[in-house]
Lab assay of single mutants.
Amino acid sequence: GKELVLALYDYQEKSPREVTMKKGDILTLLNSTNKDWWKVEVNDRQGFVPAAYVKKL
């Protein structure tokens, strides 16, 4: 099944490779191999968020 993460904080994208999320959002985790930036999918968009801003559910 898909792995989900919870947004712990708001995050505003700073580049086209990133995505914006709001605290409390549930996101689909696509890739967590990089310890600093995790790739997630939110609202049919894929991009990176800081790993410290999310936690695995």
Score class of each variant (00 low, 15 high):
Gly1Tyr: 14
Gly1Phe: 15
Gly1Ser: 14
Lys2Val: 14
Lys2Pro: 14
Lys2Ser: 10
Lys2Cys: 14
Lys2Gln: 11
Glu3Thr: 13
Glu3Asp: 11
Glu3Met: 13
Glu3Asn: 11
Leu4Tyr: 15
Leu4Glu: 07
Leu4Cys: 11
Leu4Gln: 10
Leu4Ala: 06
Leu4Asn: 05
Val5Glu: 00
Val5Ser: 03
Val5Thr: 03
Val5Phe: 06
Leu6Tyr: 10
Leu6Thr: 07
Leu6Met: 14
Ala7Cys: 13
Ala7Leu: 02
Ala7Gln: 01
Tyr9Ser: 08
Tyr9Arg: 15
Asp10Leu: 02
Asp10Cys: 06
Asp10Asn: 08
Asp10Gln: 03
Asp10Glu: 06
Asp10Pro: 06
Tyr11Met: 01
Tyr11Gly: 00
Tyr11Pro: 00
Tyr11Cys: 02
Tyr11Trp: 12
Gln12Asp: 15
Gln12Pro: 06
Glu13Asn: 07
Glu13Pro: 14
Glu13Lys: 13
Glu13Cys: 12
Lys14Pro: 05
Ser15Lys: 07
Ser15Phe: 06
Pro16Arg: 10
Pro16Met: 09
Arg17Gly: 15
Arg17Asn: 14
Glu18Met: 05
Val19Phe: 11
Val19Ile: 15
Thr20Asp: 04
Thr20Leu: 02
Thr20Ser: 15
Thr20Val: 03
Met21Ile: 14
Met21Lys: 00
Met21Ala: 02
Met21Asn: 01
Lys22His: 11
Lys22Ser: 10
Lys22Phe: 12
Lys22Tyr: 12
Lys23Tyr: 05
Lys23Ser: 07
Lys23Leu: 06
Gly24Leu: 02
Asp25Ile: 04
Asp25Gly: 05
Asp25Leu: 05
Asp25Thr: 07
Asp25His: 05
Asp25Cys: 06
Ile26Met: 07
Ile26Thr: 07
Ile26Cys: 06
Ile26Arg: 05
Ile26Asn: 03
Leu27Val: 06
Thr28Arg: 11
Thr28Pro: 15
Leu29Trp: 01
Leu30Ser: 03
Leu30Arg: 04
Leu30Gln: 04
Leu30Cys: 07
Leu30Asp: 02
Asn31Glu: 15
Asn31Pro: 03
Asn31Leu: 09
Asn31Asp: 15
Ser32Thr: 09
Ser32Ile: 06
Ser32Leu: 05
Ser32Pro: 06
Thr33Ile: 09
Thr33Trp: 09
Thr33His: 12
Thr33Ser: 14
Asn34Thr: 06
Asn34Pro: 04
Asn34Val: 05
Asp36Cys: 13
Asp36Gln: 11
Asp36Met: 14
Asp36Pro: 02
Trp37Ile: 03
Trp37Asp: 01
Trp37Cys: 06
Trp38Thr: 03
Trp38Asn: 01
Trp38Glu: 01
Lys39Ala: 08
Lys39Pro: 01
Lys39Tyr: 15
Lys39Ser: 08
Lys39Cys: 14
Val40Leu: 04
Val40Cys: 06
Glu41Pro: 00
Glu41Cys: 13
Glu41Ile: 09
Glu41Ala: 11
Val42Glu: 04
Val42Cys: 11
Val42Pro: 00
Val42Met: 14
Asn43Trp: 10
Asn43Pro: 12
Asp44Pro: 06
Asp44Thr: 10
Asp44Ile: 06
Arg45Val: 08
Arg45His: 07
Arg45Thr: 07
Arg45Pro: 00
Arg45Phe: 05
Arg45Met: 07
Gln46Ser: 12
Gly47Met: 05
Gly47Arg: 02
Gly47Ile: 04
Phe48Lys: 03
Phe48Gln: 03
Phe48Ser: 03
Val49Thr: 01
Pro50Ser: 02
Pro50Gln: 02
Ala51Thr: 06
Ala51Trp: 02
Ala51Phe: 02
Ala52Gly: 12
Ala52Cys: 15
Ala52Pro: 08
Ala52Val: 10
Tyr53Glu: 03
Tyr53Arg: 07
Val54Arg: 00
Val54Tyr: 01
Val54Asp: 01
Val54Lys: 01
Val54Met: 06
Val54Pro: 02
Val54Asn: 00
Lys55Trp: 08
Lys56Tyr: 10
Lys56Val: 13
Lys56Pro: 10
Lys56His: 09
Lys56Thr: 08
Leu57Pro: 03
Leu57Cys: 14
Leu57Lys: 04
Leu57Met: 10
